[in-house]
């Protein structure tokens, strides 16, 4: 919903990586700081093609109100659900403590 930045600094890339919880090395930061602006520039070309009268699209089809009835459907069993987890305990998904959380 925000305007894409014209340029993107190394600090921006570090910030985005932090938000995405991706650990980037200095070399990777340098690399992406030069790569991302090029990608954004390509996006900007498409943006210029659309006039002010064209609304930003958020859904590929011009449809509204796709609803379902409030009717139960069978769930996965806990075994099925947890089979996809790397680890589980007490019938719950076991996840590592998240960095920076209390």
């Amino acid at each position: 919903m925000s305007e894409p930045a014209k340029g993107i600094s190394r600090t921006d890339v570090a910030h985005l990586a932090g938000l995405a919880r991706i650990d980037l090395s200095d070399a990777e930061l340098d690399h992406l700081a030069s790569e991302l602006p090029a990608i954004l520039e390509n996006v900007a070309i498409v943006q210029r093609a659309a006039g002010d009268d064209v609304e930003a699209m958020s859904h590929p089809l011009p449809v509204n109100n796709v609803f379902r009835e409030d009717v139960e459907v069978p769930c996965l069993t806990p075994e099925e659900a947890l089979a996809m987890a790397p680890a589980s305990e007490q019938q719950r998904f076991l996840v590592p403590k998240i960095l920076g959380e209390e």
């Binding site: 139960e72 459907v73 769930c75």
Partner: peptide, 28 residues
């Protein structure tokens, strides 16, 4: 509601853990 916001899993309070999930609410 009887089911979740975006999938047909039931919503009863106090069910055994992870008995009310499906590919939608587990984000498969």
């Amino acid at each position: 509601t009887a089911t979740k916001m975006f999938c047909g899993c039931p919503t009863g309070f106090g069910a055994e853990p992870n008995t009310q999930t499906c590919p939608v609410c587990l984000a498969l």
